[in-house]
Computed example of a mutant assay.
Amino acid sequence: MYFPVTYSTLSDNALTEYLIKKYEITDIIKTTYYLRGMNDTYLVTASEQKYIFRVYRGDWRKNYSEVGFEIDLLQYLSEQGISVSLPIPDAEGELIQVIRAPEGNRFGVLFTFAEGSEKAIDDNEISNIFGRAVADIHLKGDNFQSNYLRPDINLDYLIKQSLLTIESAMQHRKEDFKILENAANQLEKIIEEQHGLDWGICHGDLHGNTNVSFKDDLSMTHYDFDLCGYGWRAYDIAEFRLAREIRLGHDNEKLEEIWNAFMKGYKSIRPLSDNDLRVIPVFVGIRQLWLMGLCLKDPHINGSIDYDDDFIDEKLIYFKNLKVLQEGISNR
């Protein structure tokens, strides 16, 4: 009998044998553990090309339907002319594998390799191009439908579930939790008071790093739609803004230049209402709250040492100084 396991790391060598057998790709040279995140990413190197094999966390993607939804979206976007990393069927035509791991079943998908390289989205040209690409996903995703189900990216998902996790982690700081809860309730109330916000398919993680690969001509291939779902487009865009704020918070002029270039590119492809534009700062705060909940809920990625009281203090300072709660959105 083995000790219970929460999160296992599958053997590179065993996966090589597994992939050769399942996909009949006989020229695989090696499989290398590539990236740990919300799922495990393996780089599969064959004699003439590369692939990506993703193994979903058993405690993150528990249902076949959640993975099926993502696969459907990738295939749909590809049919609409958007370059995405696509799932590859095995020898029997199956796109999703069920792997028996020590902690239980985990899902696995083999993807085409996104050629190119990651680039810092830190100048006006590439920000504008990325903004157009994001708008293209939203525009062409408007008619997407799937028979598979995945939770909506709504206020229950973003705020209520996050607060439950945060409260559990802050039992020793109940008064401080009330401060965070009050900030979250204010953000929620602002969104609830809005009408007609753009709702549709979202990528869910549009920070522009480790999910898009650029070629020399700045054409790109999108990948890692693990956080996709139906949600507010202003929320989807807000993650790009938040990532730039984290990176360029010390240089507000540069931040605004890149943001304006991104939005100019976006709006050249599809419009956003004034209402949607006004709530982006609100969704920036909501995204930060969701990320806080995610970190406190899932210490197995980096270890809980990174999410101690110093981490909580940092978030408290952020929400105490959040401008949209101090100034509102009426003049935005």
Rank of each mutant, 00 (worst) to 15 (best):
L296T: 05
Q186N: 14
A46C: 06
I190Y: 07
D216I: 08
K174R: 14
H172W: 09
G141V: 01
L155I: 08
V98P: 08
I201S: 07
S11M: 04
Y157K: 12
D152L: 13
A135K: 01
G116M: 01
M263C: 09
V55G: 03
K50M: 09
V67S: 00
E103W: 04
A184E: 02
Y23P: 00
D276Q: 07
D309Y: 11
H138L: 07
G196N: 11
T165F: 14
G108A: 01
L242D: 11
L272F: 08
F107C: 03
N143S: 12
Y56R: 01
K254H: 10
M38R: 12
I329A: 07
S273D: 07
L19W: 00
G265A: 03
I99Y: 01
M220A: 13
F319Y: 05
L86A: 03
H207Y: 07
S330A: 14
Y76V: 03
L15P: 03
E256Y: 11
Q97Y: 01
A91R: 06
E245G: 08
G285C: 03
V212I: 15
D308P: 08
P271Q: 10
S47N: 13
Q145E: 10
L255E: 04
N124C: 12
Y56P: 03
G229D: 05
S65C: 05
G208T: 04
Q194A: 10
A234Q: 09
L155C: 10
D152F: 13
G231I: 06
I166C: 07
R270M: 14
G58P: 05
L316R: 03
M292E: 06
N128Q: 12
A133C: 08
D40F: 03
E17N: 14
T112G: 15
G208W: 00
G285L: 04
Q75M: 15
T165K: 15
I166S: 04
L15E: 02
D251G: 02
F130T: 01
L164N: 15
I121F: 05
E125C: 12
F107Y: 13
S8Q: 06
C202G: 06
W199I: 13
N275Y: 12
V84Q: 01
L43D: 06
I246H: 08
I29E: 15
S83T: 08
K323P: 09
N211Q: 14
S213Y: 01
P299M: 05
A183E: 05
T26C: 00
I153N: 12
P87S: 01
L242P: 06
R233Y: 12
R332W: 13
I20W: 00
F311W: 01
K50C: 07
K189M: 13
S146L: 01
L155P: 10
D236E: 06
K254Y: 06
D226N: 05
M292N: 06
D152Q: 13
L95D: 04
N331M: 11
R132H: 06
N39C: 07
N302R: 14
E66G: 05
K215F: 06
A243G: 13
F130I: 02
M170A: 11
L19I: 00
N13C: 10
R57S: 11
F177L: 04
D156S: 15
A14G: 10
K22I: 00
K320S: 12
D12T: 11
Y76P: 02
S330C: 11
T26P: 00
S268V: 05
S213N: 09
N147V: 10
I280K: 09
K297N: 15
D310R: 14
Q171F: 10
I317W: 10
R106G: 03
L164S: 15
Q75N: 14
A261H: 05
A91L: 03
G108K: 00
A169L: 08
D123I: 07
